[in-house]
Write a protein that binds this DNA or RNA. Structure first.
Lengths: 149, 149
DNA sequence: TATTGTTATACTCTATAACTATA
DNA sequence: TATAGTTATAGAGTATAACAATA
Protein backbone atom coordinates (compact mmCIF):
# COMPACT_ATOMS: atom_id res chain seq x y z
CA UNK A 1 0.00 0.00 0.00
CA UNK A 2 1.63 3.29 -1.08
CA UNK A 3 2.36 5.96 1.50
CA UNK A 4 1.22 9.43 0.53
CA UNK A 5 4.60 11.08 0.25
CA UNK A 6 4.14 13.72 -2.40
CA UNK A 7 1.96 16.76 -1.86
CA UNK A 8 -1.63 15.92 -1.02
CA UNK A 9 -3.05 18.20 -3.62
CA UNK A 10 -6.77 18.06 -3.77
CA UNK A 11 -10.04 17.23 -2.11
CA UNK A 12 -12.31 14.77 -3.89
CA UNK A 13 -14.19 17.59 -5.57
CA UNK A 14 -11.00 19.32 -6.61
CA UNK A 15 -9.58 16.06 -7.89
CA UNK A 16 -12.44 15.61 -10.37
CA UNK A 17 -12.06 19.16 -11.58
CA UNK A 18 -8.28 18.86 -11.94
CA UNK A 19 -8.55 15.58 -13.81
CA UNK A 20 -11.23 16.95 -16.11
CA UNK A 21 -9.21 19.95 -17.22
CA UNK A 22 -5.86 18.18 -17.59
CA UNK A 23 -7.37 15.19 -19.38
CA UNK A 24 -9.28 17.37 -21.84
CA UNK A 25 -6.28 19.59 -22.48
CA UNK A 26 -3.90 16.68 -22.96
CA UNK A 27 -6.29 14.85 -25.26
CA UNK A 28 -6.65 17.89 -27.50
CA UNK A 29 -2.89 17.99 -27.92
CA UNK A 30 -2.62 14.26 -28.56
CA UNK A 31 -5.38 14.46 -31.13
CA UNK A 32 -3.53 17.20 -32.95
CA UNK A 33 -0.55 14.88 -33.54
CA UNK A 34 -1.40 12.89 -36.62
CA UNK A 35 -0.21 11.83 -40.04
CA UNK A 36 -2.56 13.30 -42.61
CA UNK A 37 -1.40 11.89 -45.90
CA UNK A 38 -4.98 11.87 -47.04
CA UNK A 39 -6.80 14.75 -45.37
CA UNK A 40 -9.63 13.11 -43.56
CA UNK A 41 -12.82 14.60 -42.15
CA UNK A 42 -13.77 14.05 -38.52
CA UNK A 43 -16.29 11.36 -39.46
CA UNK A 44 -13.82 9.54 -41.68
CA UNK A 45 -11.35 9.51 -38.80
CA UNK A 46 -14.08 8.15 -36.57
CA UNK A 47 -14.86 5.32 -38.99
CA UNK A 48 -11.17 4.55 -39.26
CA UNK A 49 -10.83 4.33 -35.50
CA UNK A 50 -13.97 2.23 -35.06
CA UNK A 51 -12.87 -0.25 -37.70
CA UNK A 52 -9.42 -0.32 -36.15
CA UNK A 53 -11.00 -1.66 -32.97
CA UNK A 54 -13.82 -3.86 -34.23
CA UNK A 55 -12.19 -5.09 -37.43
CA UNK A 56 -15.41 -5.41 -39.46
CA UNK A 57 -18.66 -3.49 -39.10
CA UNK A 58 -21.83 -3.08 -41.12
CA UNK A 59 -22.99 0.25 -42.52
CA UNK A 60 -25.71 0.40 -39.89
CA UNK A 61 -23.34 -0.29 -37.02
CA UNK A 62 -20.98 2.39 -38.28
CA UNK A 63 -23.86 4.86 -38.62
CA UNK A 64 -25.03 4.41 -35.03
CA UNK A 65 -21.44 4.42 -33.76
CA UNK A 66 -20.67 7.73 -35.49
CA UNK A 67 -24.13 9.13 -34.67
CA UNK A 68 -24.99 9.63 -38.30
CA UNK A 69 -27.94 8.47 -40.42
CA UNK A 70 -27.50 5.46 -42.72
CA UNK A 71 -27.59 7.47 -45.98
CA UNK A 72 -24.77 9.65 -44.71
CA UNK A 73 -22.69 6.62 -43.77
CA UNK A 74 -23.26 5.15 -47.23
CA UNK A 75 -21.70 8.31 -48.64
CA UNK A 76 -18.83 8.44 -46.14
CA UNK A 77 -17.94 4.81 -46.83
CA UNK A 78 -18.14 5.39 -50.59
CA UNK A 79 -15.71 8.30 -50.32
CA UNK A 80 -13.34 6.27 -48.17
CA UNK A 81 -13.59 3.39 -50.60
CA UNK A 82 -12.55 5.69 -53.46
CA UNK A 83 -9.65 6.89 -51.30
CA UNK A 84 -8.58 3.27 -50.87
CA UNK A 85 -9.10 3.19 -47.09
CA UNK A 86 -11.94 0.69 -46.77
CA UNK A 87 -13.49 -2.17 -48.74
CA UNK A 88 -17.07 -3.40 -48.86
CA UNK A 89 -17.98 -7.09 -48.87
CA UNK A 90 -21.32 -8.87 -48.55
CA UNK A 91 -22.39 -10.21 -45.16
CA UNK A 92 -21.86 -13.97 -44.70
CA UNK A 93 -25.45 -14.97 -44.00
CA UNK A 94 -27.63 -11.85 -44.39
CA UNK A 95 -27.42 -10.63 -47.96
CA UNK A 96 -29.04 -7.29 -47.10
CA UNK A 97 -26.11 -6.17 -45.01
CA UNK A 98 -22.76 -4.83 -46.14
CA UNK A 99 -19.59 -5.41 -44.13
CA UNK A 100 -16.91 -2.73 -44.19
CA UNK A 101 -13.24 -3.48 -43.53
CA UNK A 102 -10.00 -1.52 -43.47
CA UNK A 103 -7.53 -1.87 -46.30
CA UNK A 104 -3.82 -2.44 -45.66
CA UNK A 105 -3.22 1.23 -46.43
CA UNK A 106 -5.65 2.22 -43.68
CA UNK A 107 -3.98 -0.12 -41.19
CA UNK A 108 -0.64 1.48 -42.03
CA UNK A 109 -2.13 4.93 -41.55
CA UNK A 110 -3.59 3.99 -38.17
CA UNK A 111 -0.30 2.53 -37.00
CA UNK A 112 1.57 5.61 -38.20
CA UNK A 113 -0.84 7.82 -36.29
CA UNK A 114 -0.44 5.85 -33.09
CA UNK A 115 3.35 5.92 -33.48
CA UNK A 116 3.37 9.66 -34.09
CA UNK A 117 1.29 10.29 -30.98
CA UNK A 118 3.38 7.99 -28.83
CA UNK A 119 6.58 9.67 -30.00
CA UNK A 120 5.13 13.06 -29.17
CA UNK A 121 4.10 11.85 -25.71
CA UNK A 122 7.50 10.27 -25.12
CA UNK A 123 9.30 13.54 -25.76
CA UNK A 124 6.92 15.24 -23.34
CA UNK A 125 7.56 12.49 -20.76
CA UNK A 126 11.33 12.95 -21.08
CA UNK A 127 10.93 16.50 -19.79
CA UNK A 128 9.48 15.25 -16.50
CA UNK A 129 11.54 14.14 -13.50
CA UNK A 130 12.02 10.39 -12.85
CA UNK A 131 9.76 10.73 -9.82
CA UNK A 132 6.99 12.25 -11.91
CA UNK A 133 7.31 9.45 -14.43
CA UNK A 134 7.00 6.92 -11.59
CA UNK A 135 3.79 8.60 -10.48
CA UNK A 136 2.40 8.38 -13.99
CA UNK A 137 3.43 4.73 -14.29
CA UNK A 138 1.35 3.95 -11.25
CA UNK A 139 -1.48 6.19 -12.42
CA UNK A 140 -1.74 4.69 -15.91
CA UNK A 141 -3.67 1.53 -14.91
CA UNK A 142 -5.93 3.59 -12.64
CA UNK A 143 -6.74 5.96 -15.48
CA UNK A 144 -7.40 2.91 -17.59
CA UNK A 145 -9.98 1.71 -15.03
CA UNK A 146 -11.47 5.20 -14.83
CA UNK A 147 -11.85 5.30 -18.61
CA UNK A 148 -13.49 1.89 -18.74
CA UNK A 149 -17.21 1.95 -19.39
CA UNK B 1 10.93 10.95 -2.80
CA UNK B 2 8.22 8.32 -3.29
CA UNK B 3 9.10 4.65 -3.15
CA UNK B 4 7.79 2.58 -6.03
CA UNK B 5 5.51 0.31 -4.09
CA UNK B 6 2.73 -0.50 -6.50
CA UNK B 7 3.29 -2.58 -9.56
CA UNK B 8 5.91 -1.18 -11.92
CA UNK B 9 3.70 -1.49 -14.93
CA UNK B 10 5.32 -0.11 -18.00
CA UNK B 11 8.49 0.75 -19.80
CA UNK B 12 8.82 4.34 -21.03
CA UNK B 13 7.50 3.34 -24.43
CA UNK B 14 4.59 1.45 -22.94
CA UNK B 15 3.84 4.33 -20.62
CA UNK B 16 3.29 6.74 -23.51
CA UNK B 17 1.04 4.23 -25.25
CA UNK B 18 -0.98 3.52 -22.10
CA UNK B 19 -1.40 7.22 -21.34
CA UNK B 20 -2.44 7.93 -24.90
CA UNK B 21 -5.22 5.37 -24.98
CA UNK B 22 -6.59 6.01 -21.50
CA UNK B 23 -6.46 9.80 -21.90
CA UNK B 24 -8.24 9.70 -25.25
CA UNK B 25 -10.85 7.27 -24.00
CA UNK B 26 -11.51 9.20 -20.82
CA UNK B 27 -11.74 12.51 -22.66
CA UNK B 28 -14.34 11.12 -25.05
CA UNK B 29 -16.51 10.14 -22.11
CA UNK B 30 -16.05 13.47 -20.34
CA UNK B 31 -16.95 15.32 -23.52
CA UNK B 32 -20.14 13.31 -23.82
CA UNK B 33 -21.37 14.66 -20.45
CA UNK B 34 -22.94 18.00 -21.20
CA UNK B 35 -26.01 20.11 -20.77
CA UNK B 36 -27.50 20.73 -24.18
CA UNK B 37 -30.38 23.10 -23.59
CA UNK B 38 -29.68 24.70 -26.93
CA UNK B 39 -28.29 22.08 -29.28
CA UNK B 40 -24.98 23.47 -30.34
CA UNK B 41 -22.73 22.51 -33.24
CA UNK B 42 -19.10 21.57 -32.64
CA UNK B 43 -17.90 25.00 -33.77
CA UNK B 44 -20.39 26.82 -31.58
CA UNK B 45 -19.18 24.79 -28.63
CA UNK B 46 -15.61 25.69 -29.59
CA UNK B 47 -16.42 29.41 -29.68
CA UNK B 48 -18.17 29.09 -26.33
CA UNK B 49 -15.11 27.43 -24.81
CA UNK B 50 -12.66 29.91 -26.32
CA UNK B 51 -14.64 32.89 -25.05
CA UNK B 52 -14.93 31.21 -21.68
CA UNK B 53 -11.17 31.33 -21.39
CA UNK B 54 -10.25 34.57 -23.13
CA UNK B 55 -13.31 36.63 -22.18
CA UNK B 56 -13.38 38.76 -25.34
CA UNK B 57 -12.12 37.95 -28.82
CA UNK B 58 -12.45 39.49 -32.27
CA UNK B 59 -14.05 37.68 -35.20
CA UNK B 60 -10.64 37.14 -36.75
CA UNK B 61 -9.15 35.68 -33.56
CA UNK B 62 -12.09 33.32 -33.19
CA UNK B 63 -11.76 32.26 -36.84
CA UNK B 64 -8.09 31.32 -36.52
CA UNK B 65 -8.72 29.69 -33.14
CA UNK B 66 -11.50 27.49 -34.54
CA UNK B 67 -9.61 26.93 -37.81
CA UNK B 68 -12.39 28.44 -39.88
CA UNK B 69 -12.41 31.26 -42.45
CA UNK B 70 -13.61 34.74 -41.40
CA UNK B 71 -16.87 34.60 -43.42
CA UNK B 72 -17.82 31.35 -41.68
CA UNK B 73 -17.11 32.85 -38.26
CA UNK B 74 -19.29 35.84 -39.13
CA UNK B 75 -22.11 33.40 -39.73
CA UNK B 76 -21.43 31.30 -36.62
CA UNK B 77 -21.35 34.38 -34.41
CA UNK B 78 -24.55 35.69 -35.98
CA UNK B 79 -26.33 32.42 -35.22
CA UNK B 80 -25.05 32.41 -31.66
CA UNK B 81 -26.10 36.04 -31.27
CA UNK B 82 -29.64 35.12 -32.34
CA UNK B 83 -29.56 32.26 -29.83
CA UNK B 84 -28.65 34.77 -27.11
CA UNK B 85 -25.24 33.25 -26.38
CA UNK B 86 -22.89 36.03 -27.49
CA UNK B 87 -22.95 39.78 -28.05
CA UNK B 88 -21.01 41.94 -30.52
CA UNK B 89 -19.50 45.28 -29.59
CA UNK B 90 -17.15 47.60 -31.44
CA UNK B 91 -13.42 47.46 -30.67
CA UNK B 92 -12.17 50.22 -28.38
CA UNK B 93 -9.60 51.76 -30.67
CA UNK B 94 -9.81 49.96 -34.06
CA UNK B 95 -13.23 50.56 -35.56
CA UNK B 96 -12.76 47.83 -38.18
CA UNK B 97 -12.76 45.08 -35.60
CA UNK B 98 -15.70 43.51 -33.75
CA UNK B 99 -15.31 42.16 -30.24
CA UNK B 100 -17.42 39.15 -29.27
CA UNK B 101 -18.36 38.39 -25.66
CA UNK B 102 -20.41 35.77 -23.84
CA UNK B 103 -23.83 36.66 -22.46
CA UNK B 104 -24.83 35.74 -18.92
CA UNK B 105 -26.86 32.84 -20.33
CA UNK B 106 -23.74 31.44 -21.99
CA UNK B 107 -21.75 31.77 -18.76
CA UNK B 108 -24.46 29.85 -16.94
CA UNK B 109 -24.39 27.17 -19.64
CA UNK B 110 -20.60 26.81 -19.39
CA UNK B 111 -20.74 26.53 -15.61
CA UNK B 112 -23.52 23.95 -15.84
CA UNK B 113 -21.44 21.93 -18.27
CA UNK B 114 -18.39 21.95 -16.02
CA UNK B 115 -20.51 20.99 -13.03
CA UNK B 116 -22.14 18.14 -14.92
CA UNK B 117 -18.76 16.76 -15.98
CA UNK B 118 -17.28 17.05 -12.52
CA UNK B 119 -20.26 15.26 -11.01
CA UNK B 120 -19.90 12.46 -13.53
CA UNK B 121 -16.18 12.15 -12.77
CA UNK B 122 -16.84 12.18 -9.01
CA UNK B 123 -19.20 9.22 -9.25
CA UNK B 124 -16.57 7.38 -11.29
CA UNK B 125 -13.93 8.25 -8.67
CA UNK B 126 -16.11 6.92 -5.87
CA UNK B 127 -15.93 3.48 -7.45
CA UNK B 128 -12.13 3.38 -7.07
CA UNK B 129 -10.31 2.28 -3.93
CA UNK B 130 -8.87 4.95 -1.59
CA UNK B 131 -5.38 3.87 -2.68
CA UNK B 132 -6.26 4.44 -6.33
CA UNK B 133 -7.65 7.85 -5.54
CA UNK B 134 -4.41 8.71 -3.73
CA UNK B 135 -2.47 7.75 -6.81
CA UNK B 136 -4.64 10.01 -8.96
CA UNK B 137 -4.29 12.84 -6.45
CA UNK B 138 -0.54 12.69 -6.88
CA UNK B 139 -0.83 12.24 -10.64
CA UNK B 140 -3.14 15.20 -11.24
CA UNK B 141 -0.45 17.93 -11.03
CA UNK B 142 1.89 15.82 -13.18
CA UNK B 143 -0.79 15.44 -15.85
CA UNK B 144 -1.30 19.17 -15.58
CA UNK B 145 2.40 19.72 -16.37
CA UNK B 146 2.23 17.18 -19.18
CA UNK B 147 -0.75 18.99 -20.70
CA UNK B 148 0.95 22.38 -20.48
CA UNK B 149 2.15 23.75 -23.81
C1' DT C 1 -2.34 50.55 -49.85
C1' DA C 2 -3.41 46.94 -46.29
C1' DT C 3 -6.57 44.98 -43.04
C1' DT C 4 -11.16 43.61 -40.78
C1' DG C 5 -15.47 42.15 -41.33
C1' DT C 6 -19.50 41.33 -44.36
C1' DT C 7 -22.17 39.84 -48.56
C1' DA C 8 -22.80 36.81 -52.84
C1' DT C 9 -22.28 32.45 -54.74
C1' DA C 10 -20.80 27.57 -55.25
C1' DC C 11 -19.68 23.27 -53.05
C1' DT C 12 -19.77 19.68 -49.52
C1' DC C 13 -22.01 17.14 -46.02
C1' DT C 14 -26.06 15.54 -43.66
C1' DA C 15 -31.02 14.39 -43.10
C1' DT C 16 -35.75 13.01 -44.70
C1' DA C 17 -38.41 10.46 -47.92
C1' DA C 18 -38.88 7.12 -51.40
C1' DC C 19 -37.10 2.86 -53.47
C1' DT C 20 -34.84 -1.96 -54.01
C1' DA C 21 -33.48 -6.29 -52.27
C1' DT C 22 -33.54 -9.62 -48.74
C1' DA C 23 -35.36 -11.79 -44.16
C1' DT D 1 -44.41 -7.18 -43.19
C1' DA D 2 -39.92 -5.55 -41.45
C1' DT D 3 -35.12 -4.48 -42.13
C1' DA D 4 -30.46 -2.96 -44.53
C1' DG D 5 -28.69 -0.26 -47.73
C1' DT D 6 -29.02 2.99 -51.60
C1' DT D 7 -30.79 6.95 -54.41
C1' DA D 8 -33.13 11.62 -54.84
C1' DT D 9 -33.87 15.96 -53.05
C1' DA D 10 -33.62 19.74 -49.72
C1' DG D 11 -31.31 22.21 -45.92
C1' DA D 12 -27.27 23.66 -43.09
C1' DG D 13 -22.46 24.92 -43.01
C1' DT D 14 -18.10 26.24 -45.11
C1' DA D 15 -14.96 28.33 -48.56
C1' DT D 16 -13.62 31.58 -52.34
C1' DA D 17 -14.23 35.97 -54.41
C1' DA D 18 -15.85 40.56 -54.33
C1' DC D 19 -17.00 44.57 -51.53
C1' DA D 20 -17.30 48.37 -47.75
C1' DA D 21 -15.25 50.67 -43.97
C1' DT D 22 -11.30 51.87 -41.42
C1' DA D 23 -6.09 51.96 -40.47
Amino acid sequence: MPEVVAQQVKSDVGLASALRSSTLRLSRQIRRQRVDSHDLTANQLGVLGALGKHDAMTIGELATHEQVKPPSMTRIVSNMEEAGLVARRPHETDKRQIVVELTDAAHHLLRANRRRRDEWLQTKLKKLTPEERDILRKAAPVLERLAAP
